[in-house]
């Protein structure tokens, strides 16, 4: 339902913020997400910030992917050697 892309807040004035994605800047409203700061990454959609991307969550989320792949491979390998 949306192709929101994480954007970095570079400037906040009142209820609006300037966000940046890949060198492109755009104004979005902060009405839907309280207490954001410059430097935060936000999911934006149709001109509004929707969600603050938590840096730890983001890091955990990419590591989860990598672990997921390793754990499946290990499980598979275990079954093949029959030693689990």
């Amino acid at each position: 339902m949306c192709l929101a892309v994480p954007a970095k807040i570079v400037e906040i004035t009142g209820e609006m913020a300037k966000v940046e994605v890949g060198g492109v800047q755009r104004l979005v409203s902060l009405m839907l997400v309280p207490d954001l700061q410059v430097g935060d990454y936000v999911i934006t959609h149709a001109g509004f910030a929707l969600h603050r991307v938590d840096e730890q969550e983001a890091l955990a989320s990419i590591n989860l992917l990598r672990e997921l792949v390793e754990s499946v491979a290990a499980a598979q390998a275990g079954e093949v050697r029959g030693d689990d």
Binding site: M1, C2, S29, L32, H45, A46, F48
Partner: peptide
């Protein structure tokens, strides 16, 4: 739009 767009 769904609940993503309605709040905006």
């Amino acid at each position: 739009g769904f609940e993503t767009t309605a709040p905006t």
